[in-house]
Simulated assay, not measured.
Amino acid sequence: MWDVRAYRTPDRRRSTARIFGAVLLPCALLLSACSADQPAPTASPRASQAESSYTAPPATETAPLRGTSVPTGSLAHPSLAAKIDNHEAARPQFGLERTDVVFEELVEGGLTRYVAVWHSDIPDVVGPIRSIRPMDPDIIAPLGGIVAYSGGQQQFIDLMTRTSVVNAAFDSDETGLFSRTGEREAPHNVVLQSKALVDRNDTVPAPSQQFAYAATVPESSATVDGTPVTTISSRFSDSRWPDWTWDAASTSYLRNQEGAPDLDAGGVQLRSTNVLALRVEIDDTYLNVPKTTMIGSGEAWVSAGGKTVHALWTKAAQDAPIRLTDDNGVTIRLAAGNTWIELVPVDRGSVTLVP
């Protein structure tokens, strides 16, 4: 007899396989058709347009004498330091409002003069230009660049020319860029075509950074760690007592001399983001010509943002910059902006801070 079960089982399996295959084939064909009809992914027009219109921001660097952010390469020129007159007959001076740094120093007769330094913003004309003094090489040498002055004792000129700084002197002028203006009387009338002088020396390197800087006034060491001070008064002698008053509206200090506003040539009061008062020794080696001792150390006060922090200043060598540290030995950061430095004698001057 035939075994019915053994006979039917193969047919049932083959039948099932045929049905299963029939079901899969249309699905496979359907998937293939769907895949063929699907377009390849492409970037959206909006994204492509955004990518093509993107412009990278310009590269920036820190201005070495201001701490501000400037386009890379925009300050690839030397600094100019000039001896600027501060006699009453020389006021208002030309270009002081555009300086990066100004040093005020004691000279003969209890008067003061400036070593004014321009780099970020160089005017067409600066002055009145006066003669060199024995401390000037120590002040200017760390900057490199150019120094402009109108003569001086030969021993002081020799000290200046022995530095690496490019010397430009009115008394031996070969540039043709010094002249006397009819607006003032001699000797307070020598002026310099400063922009032209810098342009002629454009291969001289830019200065190195002299101080540590914070990006903003609120981030400066004085503002963060200092105490509120409204006025910084420095007395050099009975003839010279400049002071600086905090002006919150302009986030800067306004300058006065001998109790009156100190104005620029446009009639605007001179101002500074940072005010440094450094106590310095006076060397009387040159008899009636006082020499501010710059290589060494001393007490200092650093002001920014309406506050003042006590400090120590040090300068290791002629070519070395001034270093500022707080009472904990931490490097002080100035606020980004311009700086005035009062070099106040220890033995004959004073610094008064008014809350």
Rank of each mutant, 00 (worst) to 15 (best):
A222Q: 02
R240I: 10
V344M: 10
A304C: 05
A212T: 12
D3Q: 03
P45M: 00
G266C: 00
T72C: 09
F156D: 12
V346P: 02
V268R: 12
D37W: 15
Q154I: 10
V289S: 04
G349E: 05
K307L: 08
A212I: 01
V344W: 11
D326M: 06
R66M: 13
R184V: 08
L25S: 14
A215M: 05
F170Q: 12
I122T: 11
P128T: 09
P10V: 09
G259D: 06
G349V: 04
A300C: 14
M135K: 04
R5G: 08
T230E: 13
A311T: 13
T251K: 09
E51I: 13
I295Q: 09
S350I: 10
T99G: 03
D243Q: 11
A311S: 13
V302F: 10
G259L: 01
V229L: 06
A311M: 07
G152S: 07
R46Q: 15
S172G: 04
A214R: 01
T62E: 15
N86S: 05
A89F: 04
L80G: 07
E183K: 11
E183S: 14
Q193A: 14
L197I: 12
W340K: 08
V224D: 02
S350P: 08
D85W: 01
R200K: 15
A186Y: 08
K307P: 03
A22W: 14
V289W: 12
S237D: 14
R162H: 11
G95V: 03
G267S: 02
P10E: 11
H119M: 12
T60N: 10
R113H: 13
G73R: 09
A6S: 11
T9F: 07
S194D: 03
L263W: 03
L75Q: 14
P41Q: 09
Q209H: 06
N167G: 06
